[in-house]
Design a protein around this nucleic acid. Structure first.
Lengths: 124, 124
DNA sequence: TGTTGACTTGGACCATGGTTTAACCTTTAT
DNA sequence: ATAAAGGTTAAACCATGGTCCAAGTCAACA
């Protein structure tokens, strides 16, 4: 089984090493293995979990919730419903955020169009 | 011309008064008028500008950039191109954000589906 | 007249999400 | 043996976006 060092993991995920250590400290990377020298070893499984962390972080889930989610994963089957519920709620949040951003696009376009017109008038 | 007090403005925009004062302090509400007692008076024009501030803030433009944009508005015609450029870039940012969030939806759906299946298996 | 309610201020405080620092520990290559 | 490369830690520091507090002003009403 291949293991990645923290620098390899960081490079693969395109994220600073310091951030990975910070996530570990915050409990976002449970069950992370260490070698004899105490260095973090990222297994393929860990890399997959890390991808999940990054997905949740990029979709603006707070660190504290990501920690809770990862803790539930470690707990196993008993927390399936909790995780399902959390993901469903999170999906709704993401959809709402997309809707909000999309909803503002016309207002932004309006300003762009107005400035274009005004610039045109200025030069004519 | 109708003027709104800070509490009315706050209520209309559904935003705390403290945040409005904070925005003013940060230079996001230029040209705001005051009555004899020093109280802020929001004209219809100010309310429209405030809507713009809220639009930009909700679409994640940093306070410092919003301040720059508002300062350009005050400067007038000479800054039309700068404002146009800023809005175009901002629109691209918003589109990218929408794309990123949308791009993560399948990963979230996958988790939801997986949990649903696992729960089904558990009860069968 | 006094007190109530809405407003003002500067500055302290807070939460979030990292980033930096300083001192230290292992391998490995020279 | 020693230095460079890559890793460790706790704790301090930072930026962002507010939020809260104490002390004061002002207008109106009992």
């Amino acid at each position: 089984m291949k293991y990645y060092s923290i620098s390899e993991a960081a490079a693969l995920c395109n994220i600073p090493e310091t951030t990975l250590r910070y996530y570990d400290k915050k409990g976002l990377l449970p069950l992370i293995e260490r070698d004899e020298a105490g260095r973090r070893m990222f297994s393929e499984t860990q890399m997959a979990l890390l991808q999940t962390v990054i997905c949740l972080k990029n979709t603006h889930m707070p660190i504290s919730s990501i920690r809770q989610y990862m803790a539930w994963i470690v707990e196993g089957e008993a927390t399936l419903e909790l995780r399902l519920d959390m993901m469903r709620k999170h999906k709704q949040k993401v959809l709402q955020e997309i809707a909000m951003l999309t909803g503002y696009l016309p207002a932004i376009d309006e300003k762009i169009d107005r400035y274009l017109k005004q610039l045109e008038e200025k030069t004519t």
